[in-house]
Design a protein around this nucleic acid. Structure first.
Lengths: 336, 336
DNA sequence: GCGAGTAACTTGAACGGTAACTGAGGCGCT
DNA sequence: AGCGCCTCAGTTACCGTTCAAGTTACTCGC
């Protein structure tokens, strides 16, 4: 089997503790001894046993990353950001895809807590108001950072954009492009969905435009719901001339519906999405969108979490807002 | 702190071992005692400590999933398939994104082996011929399954498509659609790239068409390389009228280049990709592609691996080939 | 020349489990 | 009565590490 510290100790005729100290370059050991030990370790290719170590240190160097949907490239990008920051620090990332299901999420978080991960990063699929999971999390004393979707509840760390700002930015852009009948395909009743809707409303109000309920269609997360929602909007009279979509997949679906109806994007209807997924530029009509700096979100969350995991006392809740950034492509360009 | 078996034992006035046996419903325990123990466990919400258990059982219930790029939705889909199969069995999946870098991959695999994962699923970014990593893996006795990219080397388990078959299928399709000057944007020198190229060659040969070196452009993995490669191909005289692209992102980039050059897809140039990524239908031109059943690959690999992890004796290497399936969309439809 | 101080190493007890024995009774059989 | 066997529970010994608390042996000041 693998080499253990004991083997090296016996081999060198020193005690186990000496080896252990040398390994972790503890202070009270002489340079010659330290060298002898380290040399032998290298020779035997000794690899410390994480499990045994975890057992006594109570740290696993495992971090849980709980995401609603890995196939949504926004989250895949976040995951990359998280891993990139955390791996150099010696952490491994356990990714869990909840399929946008709050209950699955809750179970997964339980499992991860049970596994004694050192920390968690969560883009929660919990509906607003459902906070049991977080109360349980608080009790477990495991530090966690929320990303993308903020929950009103307890003062948790958060990294993401302000969704109302995002919604407002996208909507204002459509107004500036000359759209006058602006619709919104809203997302589900999670924080992001609600916030973006609020931003949409606010932007309209600020420009003195009325919010027409029939211009607010319910989507969910994916492209087919965007397709369906858009078909409904096309029935409304007068037809909208601009649509702010909850996210890019929804927007892509909406564009498909518009083109199939024989209309043009952006001439007849301008479209803005959100997320700036990496293939936005390759869609039927290159998609205008609001960039959320997904990689930065992942990296920042990872940094914040690693701070929390270092300090013994839980630092006061921090909220990092990443400014949303408009990326204009063809789908909304109506004026030069 | 958390409840331990010891607490329950003392609480009930039985020995620790009794509790342990009851928990794992070992045979030599009476029903009444078992019930008493289990009841108390539930009351105290006892959660076995994975780490302590791993320490002695030498199993971690962790599985490593090593992928070249999570943002390529093909791999994200595979990951979902793997997780879906493995989580119900009590395994957690540790995902590692190697960024298509063989060295990073090697380090990551080392880390995972070191962490004593129970098994590995790998879509390797190793260039063909570089087998050190796998030799080391064999030595570690940790079961592993290769996916997507087969390596000629040792008899490892494999799940994926036959890439030459895939290449041949795509190329034949272009021929059937009436293309006569068929180019290929090839992938890197990993198994998939090589195999698809071979299939392309074979299909041309079978139809008595010559393979023209200037029709084979070097791409890599991503859409921008597809874009660049296509621009080169557009310079060739005579211009190709059909292109089989290494994968969907490459194909998407190629389409962008063609449209920007003022040509039409598929009328001037027909395009086929591979992978059937979920947004294929939403691209500039809905993309014809070869489906590789990514989810099925993930699930099958997971099943195969869990078999290996169960049986004490390493089962003989199995290769599961998933038949590639042509999905025709607009980008290659030239005949009704 | 003696106690205090210190540098360098050792000891023993966890950490929370599991596995392989060991042992106490009860029962049926000769 | 004595033997073996079965059922159920308890004992003991780890698993590989870390940590707090020793134990040496040597230096130093007075």
């Amino acid at each position: 089997m693998a080499v253990r510290m004991k083997d090296i100790a016996e081999d060198l005729g020193v005690s186990l503790m000496t080896v252990s100290k040398a390994l972790r370059n503890h202070s009270d050991i002489s340079q010659p001894t330290r060298d002898r030990v380290l040399k032998r370790m290298r020779e035997l290719n000794y690899q410390p046993d994480w499990i045994a170590r975890s057992m006594v240190t109570r740290r696993t160097y495992l971090v849980g990353l709980v995401l609603p949907d890995l196939m949504h490239s926004f989250f895949a990008e976040v995951a990359k950001g998280v891993a990139r920051k955390l791996q150099p620090l010696g952490y491994q990332v356990v990714i869990s895809d909840t399929g946008e299901d709050g209950e699955v999420e809750q179970r997964q978080v339980e499992v991860l807590v049970n596994r004694k991960v050192d920390g968690l990063i969560i883009a929660s699929a919990q509906r607003s108001g459902h906070l049991e999971m977080f109360q349980a999390l608080e009790r477990s004393r495991i530090p966690y950072v929320l990303i993308d979707r903020m929950l009103a509840g307890a003062g948790a760390h958060y990294v993401g954009v302000k969704d109302d700002e995002l919604g407002s930015l996208a909507t204002s852009h459509l107004i500036q492009q000359g759209c006058r009948r602006i619709a919104h395909i809203r997302g589900p009743a999670v924080a992001t969905g609600v916030g973006r809707l609020r931003g949409y409303r606010r932007a309209l109000a600020r420009h003195g435009m009325a919010v027409r309920p029939e211009y607010i269609a319910s989507g969910q997360y994916g492209d087919n719901t965007g397709y369906d929602a858009m078909q409904q909007l096309l029935q409304v009279d007068p037809r909208p001339d601009g649509v702010f979509c909850y996210n890019d997949p929804v927007a892509a679906g909406a564009i498909k519906a518009i083109l199939e109806a024989g209309l043009r994007v952006p001439e007849d209807i301008a479209i803005v999405g959100a997320g700036n997924v990496h293939y936005s530029d390759l869609l039927r009509v290159p998609l205008s969108t609001v960039d959320q700096s997904s990689t930065a979100i992942g990296e920042t969350a990872a940094e914040l979490l690693s701070e929390c995991m270092q300090s013994k006392t839980p630092p006061s809740p921090k909220r990092v807002f990443i400014p949303p950034r408009l990326v204009v492509r063809d789908s909304s360009r109506r004026r030069e």
